[in-house]
Simulated scan of single mutants.
Amino acid sequence: MLKNEPNESWEYSLYIPNDPRAVTVCRRTLRLILTMHGLIRVVDTAELLASELVSDAVCHTKGPAALRVRWSANVLRIGAWDADPEPPGPPRDLAQLTDAEEGRGLALVRACADLWGWQPLARNGNRGKYVWFELASAA
């Protein structure tokens, strides 16, 4: 197993088709990446939040998507790019979503991440957006 050094940075990107099965591929790939880098204590939270972002990217857009995982300066940043340039809807309050089957993604991200946001982004000639979160307590 690799051990993270404080000044060592790394990054992975996984490009995925618009297919609901890609969410499982991303979740399993993320678990493997974080385990191999010695970040096992944040795997469950990172996996949950990344699954929400990737699921939103696949279910609410028609184009390709990507998962990006980056470690830099003891901060883990995970995000999903999709081909829809529209900003994500505002996160709802988790207390209001107890029985809801949809709409929990960004509420979970807001509740569990140290920081989150989004930005317009183009990839391979496709316009879209990048929604991300950080887990600063990953170190």
Rank of each mutant, 00 (worst) to 15 (best):
G38L: 07
E47V: 07
L34S: 01
D56T: 10
A107M: 05
A138L: 10
A50C: 15
D99W: 07
W71P: 02
R41L: 03
D56N: 12
D99I: 06
L48R: 02
M36T: 13
G128F: 04
L106P: 05
T61W: 14
R110T: 05
A100Q: 15
W116Y: 06
P6Y: 06
I40M: 14
S55K: 08
I16T: 14
P87E: 09
D93E: 14
A122S: 15
G63V: 11
E101I: 14
R41V: 04
D19Y: 13
I16Y: 05
G89E: 12
M1H: 11
G89Q: 14
A46E: 07
S55Q: 15
W116I: 03
A83S: 13
R28S: 12
V131A: 12
V43F: 00
R41G: 01
E134M: 06
P64Y: 04
I78L: 03
V109C: 03
L53T: 00
W71L: 04
L135K: 00
S9Q: 07
D19P: 04
N124H: 11
G63E: 10
N7E: 05
S51I: 06
E8R: 15
D82Q: 10
E11F: 01
E47N: 06
R27S: 01
D84E: 15
I78K: 10
V109W: 02
A22N: 05
E52A: 04
P6G: 09
G117R: 11
D84H: 08
L48W: 01
C26T: 07
I40F: 07
C26N: 03
E8G: 02
N7P: 01
E102N: 13
I78Q: 01
L32Q: 15
P85H: 09
T98C: 06
E52Y: 03
P87V: 07
G38K: 15
A95F: 05
A73W: 00
A83V: 10
L30D: 06
W118L: 07
Q96G: 09
G128P: 05
V54Q: 09
T24V: 15
D93F: 04
L106H: 04
L32W: 09
W71A: 03
L108E: 01
V69I: 15
L135W: 00
A50E: 11
L32V: 15
S72F: 02
L53I: 00
G117D: 11
L14E: 08
V69R: 02
R104A: 14
A66E: 02
A107Y: 02
R92V: 03
P6S: 11
A139T: 06
P88M: 14
S9V: 04
W116T: 00
E102T: 14
D82V: 08
R92K: 15
L2T: 13
R123A: 14
M36H: 12
P87N: 07
N74W: 03
R104E: 06
A65W: 07
P90A: 08
Q119D: 13
I33L: 13
V25Q: 07
R21F: 14
L14N: 09
P87A: 04
S55Y: 10
D84F: 04
T24Q: 13
P85A: 12
A73E: 07
